[in-house]
């Protein structure tokens, strides 16, 4: 018999059969051999594989400690000298999914071995980590375990045997990697074929698949503007003139809270833009062309709007990662809600 591949499997407190939400703060621990769904993986992977250990961590513990926890988990995994790491599957679990994704991404990055997990397409972990590890598409609940385990196991086998894999052939979310392949026809021929098929109403497959952005249900409209508290938000890179908080000109990692208490206008002596994606000359001459503080103050003075928050939330929308943009949005939303803001005017460059 040849080499037995060693596997470390990561699961949460629920799939380890330790408990539900009341045990979600469980710190990480390791058990020898397979646990819970690991038994099914062991069966599907067969004798050439050995689940050496199962790493278990509570959903909340992982989600709360996140980045600071990962180095210790990676060292623990490393001590088992695995050839591959399997996590989950997490189906549509909103903490378990990102936790599995974060761990798998760290494993591939730090240990240089493949890591495979499984999630439902709407799990937030998919968009966060699909580029950094293999995420097999699953159903949205543990009912899908019976299909997820064979699909994940098949991908693990192929990866370790060095066989070619593809999103369409193996059922994982596309990782956004471009690979050179040889085809019979040139791009011009393929494009004409596609166009002819489209005109004739025949099915065709585009070679460029666009990202499918999730939609959010619209918030209810403002009922009475004269009583509404407004706030101003921007991704135009607005900062104080000294940029004292060092907002980035691109790939922002933060947002600022700029105090505009008592100001009727954004004066160019105090404010400007550090955005690296457009010519800021006009903005630095008159920052109100980025964020219309002067106009909104006028509305409030006329009594047409109820009030204006004394803080502008500002970041730089220039090559900013989707992940950071979503985090800024969620954090700004929480701050606005805490300050009873009713509506927001967001200006984008």
């Amino acid at each position: 018999m040849g080499k037995r591949y060693r596997v470390v499997h990561f699961i949460n407190q629920f799939f380890a059969q330790i408990g539900g939400e009341e045990k979600a703060d469980l710190p990480p621990s390791t058990a020898a051999g397979p646990v819970g769904p690991g038994l099914a993986f062991q069966a599907a992977l067969g004798d050439a594989f050995e689940i050496a250990a199962t790493l278990i961590c509570g959903d909340n513990y992982f989600a709360t400690h996140g980045e600071s926890l990962l180095p210790a988990l990676i060292e623990e995994i490393r001590s088992y000298a695995p050839d591959v790491v399997i996590a989950g599957p997490a189906f549509n679990a909103g903490r378990y999914g990102p936790n599995c994704g974060a761990l798998c991404a760290a494993v591939q990055r730090e240990l240089g071995i493949p890591a495979v997990t499984g999630m439902y397409c709407e799990n937030p972990g998919v968009d966060l980590y699909r580029r950094d590890c293999y995420i097999i598409e699953t159903q949205n609940s543990a009912v899908g375990m019976r299909r997820a385990v064979p699909a994940m196991s098949a991908l693990v086998k192929k990866l370790l045997r060095g066989q070619a894999v593809s999103p369409a052939g193996d059922g994982y979310f596309a990782k956004g990697i471009k690979r050179n392949v040889f085809v019979e026809k040139t791009g011009a021929d393929r494009a004409i074929d596609m166009l002819l098929a489209k005109l004739a109403g025949r099915p065709y497959q585009s070679e460029l698949v666009f990202p499918d952005f999730e939609r959010v249900p619209p918030a209810p409209p403002v009922r009475d503007l004269t009583r509404a508290r407004l706030a101003l938000v921007t991704d135009a890179g607005l900062t104080d003139r000294q940029n004292s908080a060092r907002l980035e000109s691109a790939r922002a990692t933060k947002f600022l809270e700029l105090n505009i208490g008592g100001m009727d206008t954004l004066s160019p002596e105090r404010f400007g833009s550090v955005h690296g994606g457009f010519d800021t000359t006009a903005a630095n001459r008159n920052p109100n062309v980025l964020v219309p503080l002067d106009l909104v103050r006028g509305l409030v003075r006329q009594g047409r709007a109820g009030g204006l928050l004394d803080t502008i939330y500002s970041t730089t929308g220039n090559g900013t990662s989707l992940k950071n943009a979503q985090r800024f949005g969620a954090e700004i939303a929480a701050k606005l809600r805490a300050q009873q803001v009713d509506a927001v005017i967001l200006t984008s460059t």
């Binding site: 619209p218 938000v233 949005g329 700004i332 939303a333 509506a343 005017i345 984008s348």
Partner: peptide
Amino acid sequence: MLEKELERAGIPTVQICTILPIAQTAGA
């Protein structure tokens, strides 16, 4: 993305922007 997260929190948010297809595709 900012617009969506604010709307998700239930705060009506209007995005004033130049390249409409970006905001439209992103789902504002």
